[in-house]
């Protein structure tokens, strides 16, 4: 009984808190730009509005056009539920669940690409091609970070593998994971969530034809994914699980907020990269994850 309440509580936490993050990012951007900016809760309003709206479906699209966003959203939320939350631990944990997390994100990616290919639009095909190609490099980076944690902790279950590295290793890993976070969540400098030029986008261009509740699911799923990566990054770098329950949760929330603010600052202060340079930055992200791996592996040499 307890476990069901636990899972429901976590589910509610993820679903309700996630849309806050894009709001914070936008607020930071507005603040840096000296503007008032939209309210922090803007995404909630948007989601509520989209959820009630009708849907425009392309004449070319199959039922998969509606099904794909639902699968992608469920997969992302399921992946989020696998993550432990600092001192609270994970609701469900077994050896190798970290692979389930990685592949659930892959499932979401496949479905998003599927939904994009449904419409037969050249723009959306372009976005899908970019998404699945760049994700190869991002996934290599993620698995390298996971390897680092596995080597450090000697465990292959998410609930016990967040044992932060000592010294410079943690800093390197933080930078690497942050780069991957930006790439996987399609933030500047990889992608511009605000632009209206289809040719310069990855994720936004894939969802160009979606509307109504499916679009709401896509937007909400993106917010959950951002939070998922922030929580992962925070726990991989900071020794949160050793603190008492409430303090550790507060520390986790604080660090997620910090990461969000950092994303907003990066977004305000840098320009989007040329597409040819995206693989270079992702490779750098991968290297930032690789060096801590080598450091941990070699131990004290």
């Amino acid at each position: 009984m307890f476990i069901y309440i636990d899972i429901l509580l976590r589910l509610a936490l993820w679903l309700l808190l996630a849309p806050l993050l894009p709001g914070v990012i936008n607020k930071v951007k507005a603040w840096v730009g000296g503007r008032q900016g939209p309210p922090v809760l803007q995404l909630y309003y948007d989601l509520a509005r989209l959820w009630r709206k009708g849907v425009v479906v392309s004449t070319l699209a199959s039922p998969g056009f509606i099904i794909a966003p639902a699968i992608a959203w469920t997969a992302v939320v399921a992946a989020a539920l696998l993550l432990p939350l600092a001192g609270a631990g994970a609701a469900l944990s077994f050896d190798g669940d970290v692979l389930l997390l990685v592949y659930l994100l892959a499932l979401a990616r496949f479905c998003t690409a599927w939904g994009a290919m449904e419409t037969g639009s050249a723009f959306e095909g372009m976005g899908a091609a970019r998404e699945v190609s760049f994700a190869v490099l991002a996934e290599i980076g993620i698995i390298t970070a996971v390897l680092t944690l596995v080597v450090q902790s000697g465990s292959i279950a998410l609930s016990s593998m967040f044992e932060p590295l000592p010294g410079p290793g943690a800093a390197l890993l933080a930078v690497g994971l942050f780069i991957i976070l930006l790439a996987e969540n399609c933030r500047v400098p990889f992608d511009d969530p605000n632009t209206h030029l289809e040719l310069t986008m990855i994720h936004e261009v894939m969802v160009l034809d979606h509307s109504g509740p499916p679009l709401a699911m896509i937007l909400h799923g993106a917010a959950v994914k951002l939070m998922l990566f922030s929580v992962f990054l925070a726990q991989a770098v900071l020794p949160l699980s050793e603190l008492p329950l409430l303090i550790s949760l507060a520390a986790l929330a604080g660090s997620v907020l910090l990461i969000t603010v950092a994303v907003g600052l990066v977004e305000s202060l840098t320009a989007r990269l040329a597409f040819k340079r995206v693989p270079l930055l992702l490779t750098i992200g991968f290297l930032f994850c690789l060096f801590p791996l080598i450091l941990t592996w070699m131990g004290d040499l």
């Binding site: 959820w51 709206k53 009708g54 849907v55 099904i67 966003p69 639902a70 997969a75 639009s121 509740p213």
Partner: peptide, 29 residues
């Protein structure tokens, strides 16, 4: 997970049906 996927799909399909759909050509910029 499979149950959740089915539930998610069912939820969305139901929502889409109640809100109504409109056919239109793919947006071509």
């Amino acid at each position: 997970l499979a149950c959740a996927l089915i539930a998610g799909v069912a939820l969305l399909l139901r929502m889409v049906r109640t809100n109504g759909t409109r056919q239109s050509p793919t947006w071509d910029c």
